[in-house]
Nucleic acid binder design. Structure first.
Lengths: 402, 402
DNA sequence: CCAATTTGTAAATATCCCGAACAAATCACC
DNA sequence: GGTGATTTGTTCGGGATATTTACAAATTGG
């Protein structure tokens, strides 16, 4: 069933407690860790000695001022390992190299190769090498990576099941190919889920254990956190709210194919609605928003979109009881929408749920991928099982200061 | 932060592995446990000796037939402890006393006392005493209990926030009162959530790690499992699908108060719809179902209800990606509904989600409460933290046989 | 400069787990 | 019916880890 606890059964527990404490507060003395974990001082000293020997922590400073001997504080070394965050979009491929604090040391964007799965894998390898060289990081210190991709990712195998926009990616075993070409494990995850992780780590839902991230752009998707854990669903399709039966007839053939909600308020649906109201032909969604103040068709379009999105939020909230709902994506993050949604929510909920705009914008997936990769490194490095609790991520600098 | 691991840090790990193995297969030999856990034979023997000394396990039989010495098998003693499952409804109070296998040794139903919270607590105490006496179980062996109640339960404090139907229950600190009167901890949980746990343990979603249990009766509610864990939401209101914006105008004042979906397809809504279609005055929901084959108004009513419920299922599934959706409650469990829903789903989903009727009927909450209580006893007894994994419950007899 | 307090180390002890050797029980096969 | 192979379960010694107690070192306040 599980692998044999070879020798260090209890030690891993201790190491884990120490590391978790160091993640919570960036710099802590050994005595303080002993107090807060309940372990003895020697155990902490010994664990810390091992961690320092292996390069995971270093002395960080001293605490003076209070009575008694001054304490030496230790902190996790951000440069102990590096990870790769990859945001694989239909048009752009965005890769960043980051340290264990999540500090990005190098990043680059290229148009996604149009020559299919194998070419994309080769492109990723090339970009990775360039980033390592640019940041002067040796390949050994690269310890993991996470890639976000649109479409469905099978929770069991971790391989892409359906990948729109990138031909030949779902037929290829991308994970195996990446492991072979890059020499490290790359975990694949739905891009919206990663964006939710990003917002949870560095964005506007930092302290919320239950929240939803709704991305509205070309398509519509949602990432769900419940009690600190990502909700993936049986087939990895949780949060596919494109198929919510709102904003149209769920028995309509088009809704069946692309999703009723997405048909109504995806980019295509918005433009179509705008044209139906007499808007100028050839307009984009951006144009509609630009003419919001000056054109009746644009105003009505956005009003209707907001109203439908509000019912979607109502549906999501009644099922998940989120603490916060974050709106993101090129359309969803527009403040004009939030304004109208807040107003509508006030009229159909007794205690309207808190709505926030994405703090990370189009970098949410990338940052979530980095955070997720850091978490995986921590887990694999310190023997933390998957049930050992929510994400083990360093607090953002703002949180430490607070 | 956490309590000090006094002495048995590693031992608890071993104990937990052994107990989990015994939960999975009811009767196992020590050698087999050693193999499957990776622990050494001596460790298993020692752990087992302690468990037997404390009365948690006993020798159960022998394995013969294969070459080699025959093995003594051990099993958890079902009578090592007993738990109380309580289903507190607006009209009926249903209590059962069960052993650690979930075998009910005594149960009783009474009308819920109408004299408010304190009277209900007294009633529960009286019924508990009677059950203990009837089953000849000493009070010391009663180790815990779980109570299901309609309304919202705060996930943090475990106290009832909103309790419809039972006056004065939300103002009282029920949990403290029960602890004082009964001498044991009674955990309170939403009744539909417990019904979902019941179905997960003994019902139709036994092997599903992600599923939803939808109860349609006087009111409408849902219990959610994601990846083996119950989803409670930020305020314990997850699954309150009464407020789904389906089947009516979400901006309507009545929907705002009772929930749009519940207004449409709760008992009151069904009867109202039936009358609106020219049905006979004074009818109940039961009457409507009875006249389904012989009266046009009844047929149309049920058809429309099914259609709305189908869109609700579609909404739930698009958000949660459940493996199975279980229908329960006095109305939801009617096969006439499932028939129609299956048909409708086929026309609005490309891969219709699997729908099953509740296997436990109106006992689902009670059984879920028992299962949940057994899980809590296991956790508190064997030092299993809350993040140690999904429910630690004995397999149902049918599963063991299979 | 001394007392109080806190940090960190050292030594001794207890606990727990593992590996190997070994006794016991059982089956297969001659 | 006897013998060997196989599996079970125990005993014993060794190693790793954590805890307790004692103590040295450092720092603040008077």
């Amino acid at each position: 069933m599980q692998d044999a606890p070879s020798s260090p059964v209890a030690r891993q527990q201790s190491v884990r407690l120490v590391v978790e404490r160091l993640l919570r507060d960036r710099s802590v003395s050994r005595a303080e860790i002993a107090r807060s974990t309940g372990l003895s001082k020697q155990t902490i000293s010994e664990v810390m000695r091992d961690l320092e020997r292996d390069g995971w922590v270093h002395e960080d400073g001293q605490i003076q001022g209070s009575v008694g001997r001054s304490a030496v504080t230790y902190a996790l070394r951000p440069d102990a390992a590096f990870v790769l965050g990859i945001d694989l979009g239909g048009t752009k491929l965005h890769i960043a190299l980051a340290d264990l604090h999540g500090e990005i040391v190098a990043e680059s964007i290229e148009p996604t190769s149009g020559d299919g799965g194998a070419a994309v894998v080769a492109q990723i390898e090339r970009m990775k090498d360039a980033l390592l060289q640019h940041a002067s990081v040796s390949a050994q210190r690269l310890r993991g990576g996470v890639m976000g991709s649109p479409g469905m990712v099978d929770p069991a195998s971790g391989s892409i099941v359906i990948a729109p926009n990138i031909p030949g990616l779902d037929s290829l075993d991308v994970r195996a190919a990446l492991r072979e070409r890059l020499g490290i494990d790359i975990t694949i995850e739905n891009d919206v889920n990663l964006a939710a992780i990003g917002e949870h780590w560095r964005g506007n839902s930092r302290r919320a254990r239950s929240f939803a991230f709704i991305a509205v752009g070309t398509g519509i998707g949602m990432g769900i956190f419940s009690d600190g854990y990502l909700v993936r669903g049986a087939r990895g399709a949780a949060g596919e709210i494109a198929y919510l039966p709102l904003g149209g007839d769920p028995y309509d053939a088009r809704g069946l194919r692309f999703g009723t909600l997405e048909t109504a308020i995806g980019s295509a649906g918005i433009v179509e609605r705008y044209l139906g109201l007499g808007g100028s032909p050839g307009s984009t969604v951006r144009d509609v928003f630009d003419r919001l103040e000056i054109e009746e068709a644009a105003r009505i379009t956005i009003d209707e979109i907001s109203r439908i999105l509000t019912t979607a939020i109502l549906a999501v909230h009644s099922i998940l009881d989120s603490e916060i709902i974050i709106l993101g994506g090129s359309i969803g993050a527009r403040p004009e929408l939030k304004l109208r949604i807040d107003e509508h929510l006030g009229r159909c909920m007794r205690e309207p749920v808190r709505i926030e705009l994405s703090a990370l914008g189009n970098r949410a997936t990338l940052i979530g991928a980095i955070g997720s990769a850091i978490d995986l490194v921590h887990r694999s490095q310190f023997g933390i099982g998957r049930d050992a609790g929510p994400l083990a991520l360093p607090a953002a600098a703002a949180d430490v200061a607070a």
